[in-house]
Simulated assay, not measured.
Amino acid sequence: MYIARVPNRKSKPTILLRESYREGSKVRTRTLANLTSWAPERIEALDRALKGEFDNCSGDMISGAIFGVLFALKQLADQVGIT
């Protein structure tokens, strides 16, 4: 998978999540998602993740109990509308 930036004439480029595969001896591509409406930071993070730049992340691990509490609080905040 990779991110492709397709230029448009008078508007901003279309940003697509694509996949390459082989059909017999021909290489084909399929579009998996249109990412044009995403924030540039999210697109950059996805691009870095697809390239494997987060594989050796040295960040602190969150324990299961704390993660569960934080996840529940995040879900409640999303339901209430707090960002």
Rank of each mutant, 00 (worst) to 15 (best):
T29M: 12
R42L: 08
P40S: 01
I82S: 03
F71I: 04
R42H: 11
Y21M: 03
G64E: 15
M61F: 10
S37T: 12
S63A: 14
V69K: 09
V69F: 05
G68K: 05
V69P: 00
S25L: 13
L46V: 14
W38E: 02
C57P: 09
M61I: 15
S63H: 10
G64A: 15
F71D: 14
T29A: 10
R48G: 02
A49F: 13
A33Q: 08
I82N: 02
G59P: 00
E23Q: 12
A39K: 06
W38F: 10
T36S: 09
S58L: 12
T36P: 00
L73K: 05
F54G: 02
D60L: 11
R30Y: 13
A33N: 06
K51I: 09
L73F: 06
L32R: 04
N56W: 11
S25A: 14
C57T: 10
R22C: 06
G64S: 15
G24H: 04
G81Q: 03
F71S: 06
F54P: 01
L32K: 07
E44G: 01
A72P: 00
L50G: 00
A39D: 09
R28S: 04
D55Q: 07
R22Q: 11
G24D: 03
K51N: 09
G68Y: 06
D55P: 04
R42Q: 14
G52S: 03
N56E: 06
R48A: 14
S20C: 11
I66A: 09
L46W: 06
L70F: 08
S25I: 10
Y21Q: 01
T36I: 05
D78E: 13
K51P: 04
Y21I: 09
L35R: 02
D60S: 11
G52N: 02
F71C: 08
T36F: 07
S25M: 14
S37P: 00
F54R: 00
I43R: 07
G68P: 00
D55I: 09
A33K: 09
T36A: 05
I62R: 07
T36G: 02
L73N: 11
G59R: 07
I43T: 05
A45I: 15
G81I: 13
F67W: 11
W38K: 01
V27C: 04
A77Q: 02
T29P: 00
L32Y: 08
G52R: 00
E44V: 05
L35I: 04
F67P: 03
Q75E: 12
S58K: 13
K74Y: 08
A39N: 06
N56A: 08
V80H: 03
G81Y: 01
R22G: 04
G52V: 09
G68T: 12
V80R: 01
